[in-house]
Amino acid sequence: MSPPPVVHAVNLVKIYQNGGVPVPAVRGVDLRVEAGQFVAITGPSGSGKSTLVHMLGGLDTRTSGEIWLDGKRADTLGESAWALLRRQKIGFVFQFFNLVANMTVADNVELPALLAGASAREARERREHLLGELGLTDRADASPAQLAGGEQQRVALARALANRPSLLLADEPTGNLDSRNTRDVLRLLGEVHRDGQTVILVTHDARVASLADRVVSLLDGEIVDDGFIGATRRRPRGTAGDVVELRG
C-alpha cells in the first residue's frame, strides 16, 4: 500500500464572521498532496490562500470539512496537539513573519530546533547553514526590529526550516524580497524540495511558482485549477539571446 498523502483536505470550508456578517473565505476545498511534492498556491488577493494554509497548519480552525495529515485526522485536534504537531513536523512561514521581538535572529531560528529536541550544537549548525544560505550570517545578533522587511522574511523562512520539517507551509515567503534575495530563497527551496520535504507555498511570484511541481489556483475560495506545469514546446537552447524567441 502506498503511504497516505502528507496533506489531505476534504471539502474544507472557512466562514469568518465579520460583525455578524458571514464572510466565506474557503468554500469547499479538496486537496491531496503526496510526500515530497512541491505545490504552489496562487490566486488574487482575498481568494482565501492565507486562510487555507493557516487551516492546514492548525493556525486557524475550520468551519467544516476534514484535514488529514500523514493519514491521521487533524482538524479535530486541540491547540496543544497542533502545537506539538508543528514542532515535530510542520514549518510555517507567516505572511507577516511573526518573529519573536525580544530574541536575536539567531535565537529565533534555533528555538524551533531546540524545542524539537535538537542538541544545542545541532541547532547552531543548522542555524548557521540556513542564515548563510539566505545571506544573513552577519545579522545573527540583530533583533528583528533592526531588520528590513525582506530580512525579517528570510529569517522567518530560516526559522521554519530549522527543524527540517517534513511539511513546509509558507505564505508569500518572497513578498518583500528584491530579485537577488528571491534567488537565494529559490535556491534554498530547491534544496528543501530535493531533500524530499513536502512544500505547500502561497505565492504571487511566478519565479517561485514555476519551481513547483504543481500549481493550485484559487478564486473566491474555490480551486479553479490544479495541475502540473507543462513543458513548453520550445526549450531554451542555451543563451539569453534566445529569450526573446522563448517568449514569442
Binding site: R207, S210, A240
Partner: peptide
Amino acid sequence: RRHYLGLMRDLNEL
C-alpha cells in the same frame, strides 16, 4: 497560466 509558468521555469533554468 500553466504555459506562462512553463516559460518562467525555462527562464529560471536559463
